[in-house]
Design a protein around this nucleic acid. Structure first.
Lengths: 330, 330
DNA sequence: CTGAAAGCGCTAACAA
DNA sequence: TTGTTAGCGCTTTCAG
């Protein structure tokens, strides 16, 4: 059933029906008639036909590198909360860390399919930049900084610096690092730099043998911890770029009789829900993931309302959460 | 720029352009011309205009009760994998366990906005049923069984039964239960029944004082464990409906000097990633969440291809994963 | 406040 | 294979 059939059925004009669903310059009796006919017929206006004319999709494209990640899903939850309240739906693309899918979804979102885009990317290439430049709708980037775009990000450097410093302040002498791929500016490079700064300030140096690069998984953390402990002089402190990596490292320690924190301290980043109930409760840094989603969504909303040329960067701070894994005092 | 302006620019007819993007009854020289003009102008056809005519949205509506849940995001990942390969995008609605949002999103999906719907519900009411009956596109339900619909579900009863039986086989005498809300047929009722059956078979009975109902969170598990241990006779075995609940219960035990598994065994369901690295590694039951997503998506695809009147129920089996939290032998 | 009618940008049927 | 043209179902002028 289309609008004119329905209008006939309701005994009103087509425009009356259209007005019923939109602004509402409409007499009450017609409104009643339409409401009644709606119940009778179950008519629902076609979304896409509406969009062709009005250019409004009420859809926001969200591009994520992964779905089953605690941090990412918290961000998404924040986005969904804010946008849902404003009547927007999310068109979600899970790129599964596949570069091509990231590119193709940006292409997709150029087809007038969405009113705005939120991008949770890990890596930016020239192709990313050129596609982003071609976007016709507002874009907000969450979790990374990209010059010329609205961004909500975390203080990854500071978080890593503080966590490392916390451990060093307890007198450890051989700090080790399990970082993330440095193509990832935020979780990779910035966190590594934060670690290095703290180590340097403590008057120590880091042998490359004590630096490993892991994937974002427990398994990878486990493997890299194993490599670290294959050095002659064992590390007495490991800073891990994420809690998942830290959990893997801790598992390795447990299985090999290495005591945390007595033999080695372990610190992570992300404040995963499981940190508290780990084998040894994990010291970590809370990053405001959900808030990032909320703020990113708000930023997008305001950008869609009035497209300004001024780009804003919102950096969210962090909270150190100290638990037993770094508490040598006990 | 619209199709006719673009056609002019490219020096071909409108239909040539349309054919370029669709079937492809097209001479090579025109194809070249169009490709060149595409690079020059950056023209992208309008998605909604296409949809008005063709009725194909290439969009699947996915309704979830929550985003930041490990099990749900694994299901979603499976869905996204399969559907992404077939060129479908996901229109995601996070209902945040809000009944009204579940209803309104079903309404939303009636507006010819999607080609199919995947529903991860926890509870079904009459309103659900009546709305589902009105859907004009195929629907697949994941995680629950609903008569008259295509479903992919888990053997929740069996999983709970086996986990409980495993613990009882070690000689415990006072089993306790922390279950989920029984409005949730699968995770609530079925798992509770599985527990009860196993207890009964062991010749034991369960005092209501040893049965608590928790929310799907660690915090709630912690609280309910506290209540269980306020009984005079302490339980020596707790079956928890989910790993999150189990983790909370374990945290309570740790903080109160109750030894797992010596004083009390704890078993969960879900095979969360953190189970292995818990304070005491958690015995759990692996449910094939990702597979459920994959199979559900496939079911939907085949239903969209040829709408059959025969509804299918696919029940996925489970794997017991025994770890220290139930291993009294040591 | 209302209805008729002219599009929105595209696809598909049709005749060539 | 092609180009022309009539819609798809709706919104939005515009003249009442």
């Amino acid at each position: 059933m289309n609008i004119s059939e329905f209008a006939k059925e309701a005994g009103v004009s087509v425009s009356a029906v259209s007005r019923y669903f939109n602004d509402g310059y409409l007499a009450d009796d017609k409104r009643e008639k339409i409401k009644a006919a709606l119940e009778r017929t179950g008519y629902v206006p076609s979304y896409s036909a509406r969009t062709v004319r009005s250019k409004v999709t009420k859809l926001i494209g969200v591009i994520l590198p992964k779905l089953s990640s605690e941090s990412i899903s918290r961000v998404t939850e924040g986005i969904s909360d804010v946008l849902g309240k404003e009547g927007f739906e999310l068109l979600l693309v899970n790129t599964a860390n596949d570069y091509n899918r990231e590119i193709s979804s940006l292409e997709l979102f150029r087809q007038n399919r969405v009113d705005g885009v939120i991008l949770l990317a890990s890596v930016f290439t020239d192709l990313h930049r050129s596609l982003l430049a071609k976007m016709r709708v507002p874009v907000v980037i969450i979790g990374q900084q990209l010059k010329g775009y609205n961004c909500v990000c975390h203080n990854d450097f500071g978080a890593a610096y503080s966590m490392t410093k916390l451990m060093l302040s307890k007198g450890v002498k051989r700090p080790a690092l399990i970082c993330a791929n440095h193509d990832d500016k935020a979780a990779g490079e910035d966190r590594r730099k934060g670690f290095e700064k703290a180590v340097e300030e403590a008057g120590l140096t880091v042998d490359p043998k004590y630096c490993e690069t892991a994937k974002f998984s427990m398994e990878s953390g486990y493997e890299k911890a194993k490599r670290l402990f294959s050095n002659r002089a064992k590390p007495d402190c490991i800073f891990c770029a994420t809690d998942n990596i830290a959990a893997g490292a801790m598992l390795y320690c447990r299985e090999n009789g290495i005591k945390v924190p007595d033999d080695v301290m372990i610190g992570g980043i992300g404040d995963s829900r499981f940190g508290r109930v780990l084998y040894v409760p994990l010291s970590t840094v809370h990053l405001h993931y959900k808030t990032a989603g909320i703020e990113g969504a708000k930023m997008l909303l305001s950008e869609m309302e009035s497209r300004s040329q001024v780009h804003r960067i919102l950096q969210l701070e962090y909270d150190i959460i100290e638990r037993e894994s770094t508490a040598k005092e006990n």
